[in-house]
Design a protein around this nucleic acid. Structure first.
Lengths: 250, 250
DNA sequence: GAGTGGTCTAGACCACTCA
DNA sequence: GAGTGGTCTAGACCACTCC
């Protein structure tokens, strides 16, 4: 048994991560045809000089990304391009938009401190009236106004609006300033009619249909630190890949 | 090295699946407090008589479900209840609603065959004018009409509306009848104003804001077999847990 | 029956956190 | 430095598909 031998671990990445990256690139570049079979896990392991479990980790990663799919007893196959091109994660407005080749932007309307209302204190798990930071912005796409966004943040301190203008991304600023890193969140979507504020900010009629997205964002330690409400005009769409895996009802 | 020993594999499930189930149940029943640390992977492995990798598989499964979270160098912790109760997967209208304790229902308006339009043939990757099955339904929640749903299905054959009434679930019927099993899909959401049809079916005013959801559903072999358009009244909401894991841009 | 993915093991080293 | 999760290995058995 030669369990842990040398393990070169170069480049700061993992072995399976590098293999996944390489396979992903090959598949994107059309080295393999859609639905064609990859080499078997055992073949890959032997030819690359790594363990089969490591190959499997790379393949399971690619499967979760929608790049390949495996079937027991048959093999591992290249997913059709339509599937591969699907947006993979809803990781926020900016990258969602960038992924589709659009240029996102923002207009910062306000960054101020206010006492938490009972409702917001409830979702952020803090005491009511504790000071929170409010950030109100207009989201743009290729210069066009497509929605408003209002964030309520429970943070150790506040920051001036100019810092956000410089940083560009709210999450990047919060990560750098307060060492709070967003990991996941609960999102909820629905529809709503534009009110007078929305109408004025987005240059639409009162009563026009808007896409309403609410989000509670969690830190690494799973503490909610942001409640966020977004209202998008109907031309904007929000896209995601959905896994239908049996969760055994949480 | 006694690699593959007896491996009892009873009950048709996997070892790590049963461990995950047990931990999930204990956590739900409050055996552990929120944010409290679980036994370490090594301890669990020894005390349960299984390998550490198997314990890890169970923990990674629970982590993806949002039940626990791990931090390198610190330990594995119970996620706060708010996180655990988050809807885990958007696995279709019915279970999304059931998870929140509501009673979903449907009114089947039409099941018929029609030639595929160019647009639908495009997304389903079939030739235009090939016959497809159309299913139009009204979705209800606790008896109230909350939305319309129109599915366009590329199937080897059709079925009478009564079969769908008996089966209850469209996916269950398709799985049983044609051995096509839905695995994942691309969903897109936006907003739209109600047209005359929507208004009549949902008993709302023309122009009222609706939540528009489109879905392309894929089979196990990653062939698209359904294009589906859903329109929900604004009181209905659609909820999901979002992972913010760096995907290295697909 | 040959080949495939799915599970499981016993052990190793590494990176990290925390006292 | 003790303890934790993260990675990796070499090898085994099982369930499944396809010929």
């Amino acid at each position: 048994m030669s369990g842990g031998e040398v393990q070169e671990q170069k480049g700061g990445e993992t072995l399976y991560g590098r293999l996944a990256e390489r396979l992903r690139r090959d598949i994107d570049n059309g080295v393999f045809e859609a639905n064609s079979m990859l080499a078997s896990e055992r073949e890959l392991a032997i030819s690359l000089g790594m363990s089969r479990e490591t190959v499997r980790k790379a393949l399971r990663l690619l499967e979760r990304e929608g790049v390949v799919y495996s079937e027991q007893g048959r093999g591992t196959f290249v997913a059709p391009p339509a599937v591969r091109e699907m947006a993979r994660v809803l990781d926020g407005f900016t990258s969602d938009a960038r992924r589709r080749g659009d240029e996102p932007g923002q207009i910062i309307l306000a960054v101020d401190e206010m006492p938490a209302s009972v409702a917001i204190a409830g979702v952020l798990k803090i005491e009511p009236r504790r000071p929170i930071t409010r950030v109100k912005r207009i989201r743009t796409l290729n210069g066009r106004r497509i929605g408003t966004q209002e964030s309520f943040l429970a943070l150790p301190g506040s920051f001036p609006a100019d810092d956000l203008r410089v940083a560009g991304s709210l999450y990047a600023l919060i990560g750098e300033r307060f060492s709070i890193h967003a990991t996941e969140g609960l999102e909820s979507v629905g529809s709503i009619a534009a009110n007078a504020d929305d109408a004025a900010l987005l240059d639409i009629a009162v009563g026009a249909p808007l896409l309403l997205c609410e989000r509670i964002t969690l830190s690494e330690r799973r503490q909610p630190f942001e409640y966020c409400e977004m209202r998008y005009v109907s031309s904007y769409r929000y896209t995601a890949r959905i896994n239908r895996s049996g969760p055994t009802r949480p």
